[in-house]
Amino acid sequence: MKDLLGLRDMSRTEIEEILDEGLRQYENIINRNFTDELKDRTLVTLFYEPSTRTRASFELAAKNLGARVVSIETSTSSVRKGESLIDTMRTLESMGVDYIAMRHPMTGAAHLAARFTTASIINGGDGINEHPTQALLDMLTMLKEKGRIDGLNVAIVGDILHSRVARSNIFGLTKMGARVRISGPSTMIPSGVEFMNVEVCEMVEDALKDADVIMTLRIQMERQAGGFIPSLSEYTRFYGITEKRVGLARPDAIIMHPGPMNRGVEIDYCLASSDASVIEEQVTMGVALRMAVLKFIRRETDEYPYQKRLCCR
């Protein structure tokens, strides 16, 4: 596989392979047992949107495998001078880059990038579309905590419409055989989502009942301006994850959050640090999972474009 663009078009087998490797890499992280198997490879992180954890996670994952890492700050790069995404790709390719982990505010940007470079594109989030490594690390966390994904009851709560995390998780979890229920204000439920093999619950309580996994999403403060909900406090009243609501789930249910959290809005302040919370675990899993992804995908051609150009001279 050349690129990791999304879980929409991935098969269950491919997902399982990455998750298995992710578990192995998790062991390696725990034992501080790092290799240099990607020492001749280069990763560029190209983030058109702010990010702390995803970007650091990609860079650490690459370094743990011995790869060289360059990070491009789009606010100071030629992107600001109006360079098109395609030209940025050609430029990076000409430098001999192997992996480009990119985040972009527009849907399909990673797909466009992938078409115009021989380097491997890893989608670190594209608009409201997908965030595949997040969903994979979420599944890796479930796998580690619960030993399986097949048959788990997973409740996803929040702004499903604008959440690339939710979308990728829905694709992945349903492929892996989990039962997915979603809940959120009706304005934040995307149309036709009921045909994606998920159950839509108007009341958050219905979604949480007997859940093995509670996944709460960040309420994006910047989106609220779009008028999808009247206020954060109204949201918290009806959809916030509280101790009482968690009581509806299985006693051993785990609570997940892709971060960054708004404590006191989508999740109760103390709950985020409770025993049921695996939020920090997710972050560790993120590094392991991204190591697995870097091992899993590779450029299809061994020949770097500049070598080809030299040959032609």
Binding site: T107, G108, R164, R167, P190, G192, V193, F195, M196
Partner: peptide
């Protein structure tokens, strides 16, 4: 078009 497909492809409807 806003529909199942816009949800599937992650494009604003």
């Amino acid at each position: 078009n806003e529909s199942y497909y816009s949800t599937l492809y992650g494009l604003a409807g």
